[in-house]
Amino acid sequence: KSAVKALFDYKAQREDELTFTKSAIIQNVEKQDGGWWRGDYGGKKQLWFPSNYVEEMI
């Protein structure tokens, strides 16, 4: 599983989504079709976030 870095702040709209700030590192990313991926951040595990808010880390 990979890690991504947030390009923008994102505030969860639902309880199954992540809230994060710009430059946050989201771990254990599971990529899905449809523009939403799952990952771990801030003590939350495998919640959804919009993939267009992040960049992949190499």
Rank of each mutant, 00 (worst) to 15 (best):
G39K: 00
G34E: 08
G35A: 09
G39S: 00
T21Q: 12
Q27D: 11
T19W: 07
P50Y: 01
Q13F: 07
V54T: 07
W48M: 08
R38Y: 04
A24T: 07
F49E: 03
N28K: 05
F49L: 03
L7R: 10
D16Y: 07
K5P: 00
A24W: 00
E17Q: 11
A24Q: 06
F20T: 02
E55P: 01
L18D: 01
L18Q: 01
A6I: 03
E30T: 15
K31M: 11
L7P: 04
I58L: 12
L7T: 07
G42R: 08
W48C: 07
Y41C: 06
Y53I: 12
E56K: 06
Y10I: 01
P50S: 00
L18H: 06
S23I: 03
L18V: 01
K22Y: 05
Y41H: 10
W48P: 01
D9R: 01
E30N: 13
M57T: 11
W37D: 05
E17C: 07
E15C: 14
Q32K: 13
I26W: 00
L18A: 01
R14W: 10
K45V: 15
T19Y: 04
K22F: 05
A12I: 02
G34M: 06
Y10V: 01
S51L: 06
M57I: 15
W36E: 04
T21S: 13
Y41V: 04
G39D: 03
E15L: 10
S2F: 14
K11T: 15
K31A: 05
Q27P: 03
S23H: 15
Q13I: 11
F20S: 01
E15S: 12
K1G: 13
G35F: 10
Q27I: 15
R14T: 13
V29F: 02
D33F: 09
R14Y: 11
F8P: 06
E30D: 14
S23R: 08
E30M: 14
K31Q: 08
R14F: 10
F8D: 10
Y10T: 06
I58D: 14
E30H: 14
S23A: 13
V54W: 02
Y53W: 07
D9S: 07
R14I: 06
V54R: 00
E56I: 10
R38A: 06
D33T: 12
T21H: 12
G42P: 02
R38V: 08
Q27N: 12
W48H: 05
W36K: 05
I26H: 01
S51Q: 09
K44V: 08
Q13A: 11
A6K: 01
K45S: 12
T21I: 12
Q27L: 15
W36H: 05
K1H: 13
A12S: 09
E30Y: 12
N28W: 02
K45T: 14
K44Y: 12
K22D: 04
V29A: 03
K31L: 06
L47Y: 12
S2Q: 13
G34T: 07
D40V: 00
G39F: 00
T19I: 02
Q32A: 14
E56M: 08
E56H: 07
F8I: 10
E55Q: 10
L18P: 03
K45F: 14
E17I: 00
F8Q: 13
N28F: 05
K44M: 13
E15N: 09
Q32W: 14
L7K: 11
G43F: 06
S2H: 13
E55M: 11
E56G: 07
Y53C: 15
N28H: 07
S51I: 07
D33R: 08
A24G: 09
F8G: 08
W48Q: 06
D16M: 07
Q13E: 12
G42I: 04
G34R: 05
K45R: 11
D40I: 00
V29W: 02
Y41K: 02
V54E: 02
Y53H: 10
K5A: 05
E15G: 09
G42T: 04
D9L: 00
D9W: 03
F8V: 11
N52Q: 11
L18I: 04
M57P: 08
A12Y: 03
W48K: 10
D40E: 01
W36Q: 05
S23D: 15
A6E: 04
E15F: 10
L7Y: 04
Y41D: 01
F20N: 04
I58K: 12
G39Y: 01
R38S: 06
A3S: 15
E55A: 10
A3N: 14
D16A: 06
W48E: 04
A3Q: 14
D9V: 00
G39E: 02
W37P: 03
R14E: 10
K22G: 06
M57R: 06
K31D: 03
Y10L: 00
N28R: 07
T19Q: 07
W36L: 04
S2R: 12
D16T: 10
K44A: 13
K1F: 10
K31F: 10
W48S: 05
V4I: 04
K44H: 12
V29G: 02
F8N: 11
Q13V: 12
E17G: 03
S2G: 13
Y53T: 09
G34I: 05
T21W: 08
G42Q: 11
D16H: 08
K11P: 08
K1S: 13
G43A: 09
G43Y: 07
L18M: 06
V4D: 01
E56L: 08
G34V: 05
Y53N: 04
F49S: 02
T21C: 15
K11S: 14
V29T: 03
V4R: 01
D40R: 00
K45A: 09
P50W: 04
K1L: 13
P50K: 02
K45D: 07
R14N: 14
L47I: 03
I26L: 06
K31N: 02
K31E: 05
V29E: 01
D16R: 03
Q32R: 14
D33S: 12
S23F: 14
M57C: 15
K45L: 14
D9T: 04
E30R: 13
K5W: 01
D33Q: 11
Q32V: 15
F20P: 03
L7H: 06
K31G: 03
G39C: 04
W37Y: 05
R14M: 10
A24P: 02
R14A: 14
D16F: 08
I25D: 03
A12E: 06
E55W: 06
N28D: 05
E15P: 13
